[in-house]
Simulated assay, not measured.
Amino acid sequence: MEEKCTTLGKLELEAQNWFVKVIVAEKTPIRFLRWRRQQRLVFVDKENERMQSIIYEQDVDQLDKLLELYKTYHVGNAKIREITGNTPILGTSKHQMILSRSTYIKRTEEHERIPIDHIYQFTPFSELPEIADVPTKQINLLFSVIHVFPPRFVERTKRNLQDFVIINEERRALILTLWEEFLQSEAPYLTKNVHTMPILISFALKF
């Protein structure tokens, strides 16, 4: 299989008969957007090229179980589409994969895996004010949670949120706000384990 693999940067629109070896670097919760269930992932290859992928509707449950975070897979012959409109670009490519149950997906052997220590580019807290208004700059943070505030309802937006105090290796503190879609999936874990000061990674944050 290795000799058949190309890189994410070489995939073009309407490409056929291709295979890549990638690691699942990012994975969102399953959400309803525009009346459809969907899930987004970011694949990274050994050249550190990144491409976002999306799964829709009836394919979500099966592929969510198959594609585990930080595991390496051979993926082939998914549809390649251009990212249009206001859809954020989470990778280095302006294209995205459309994954389905008919896509070739097979987890690699352990000795074939891509190491995860070369795929992350973390943003120092000190640089956040400089890049806050740069739409093409993705904010990825490595931090510990040191304090949890109670959930609250914001009258202006009619939404619930919860604030957390986080700190990074610069020993700078910051408020991390989780909105409704994350209150069920992420907030309970942070609240339960704050006393251990868990070290966490978050991707594609807004500042």
Rank of each mutant, 00 (worst) to 15 (best):
residue 61 D to F: 00
residue 17 N to D: 15
residue 159 R to P: 02
residue 10 K to A: 07
residue 188 P to L: 09
residue 79 K to G: 00
residue 93 S to N: 12
residue 65 K to R: 13
residue 140 N to Y: 12
residue 14 E to T: 09
residue 179 W to H: 11
residue 47 E to S: 07
residue 187 A to S: 15
residue 54 I to T: 12
residue 4 K to D: 08
residue 21 K to T: 03
residue 193 N to I: 02
residue 149 F to P: 00
residue 138 Q to D: 11
residue 118 H to A: 11
residue 154 V to E: 13
residue 27 K to S: 09
residue 142 L to H: 14
residue 142 L to Y: 13
residue 103 T to N: 09
residue 130 E to N: 15
residue 95 H to S: 11
residue 35 W to H: 13
residue 67 L to N: 05
residue 197 M to F: 12
residue 67 L to Q: 04
residue 160 N to M: 14
residue 144 S to I: 04
residue 181 E to M: 14
residue 49 E to S: 12
residue 52 Q to A: 03
residue 203 F to M: 09
residue 175 I to R: 13
residue 50 R to Q: 15
residue 189 Y to S: 10
residue 46 K to S: 15
residue 6 T to H: 01
residue 84 T to V: 12
residue 144 S to V: 06
residue 13 L to Q: 11
residue 107 R to G: 07
residue 113 R to G: 11
residue 124 P to F: 13
residue 51 M to L: 03
residue 26 E to V: 10
residue 139 I to Q: 03
residue 163 D to N: 15
residue 178 L to H: 08
residue 193 N to S: 09
residue 9 G to T: 10
residue 76 G to F: 01
residue 55 I to Y: 02
residue 156 R to C: 06
residue 107 R to I: 10
residue 29 P to S: 10
residue 107 R to W: 04
residue 87 T to G: 00
residue 18 W to S: 09
residue 164 F to L: 01
residue 154 V to Q: 13
residue 15 A to R: 05
residue 127 E to R: 15
residue 159 R to M: 14
residue 159 R to Q: 15
residue 146 I to S: 08
residue 61 D to I: 05
residue 25 A to E: 06
residue 162 Q to I: 00
residue 87 T to W: 08
residue 131 I to G: 02
residue 32 F to P: 00
residue 70 Y to H: 11
residue 164 F to D: 00
residue 12 E to T: 13
residue 14 E to V: 05
residue 95 H to Y: 07
residue 83 I to H: 02
residue 10 K to R: 14
residue 157 T to D: 08
residue 145 V to Q: 00
residue 125 F to A: 02
residue 148 V to C: 11
residue 77 N to S: 07
residue 16 Q to K: 15
residue 6 T to P: 00
residue 3 E to W: 03
residue 161 L to Q: 14
residue 17 N to E: 10
residue 160 N to D: 10
residue 99 L to V: 04
residue 188 P to M: 06
residue 147 H to L: 05
residue 164 F to Q: 03
residue 72 T to W: 08
residue 14 E to D: 14
residue 42 V to T: 04
residue 190 L to Q: 08
residue 62 Q to C: 11
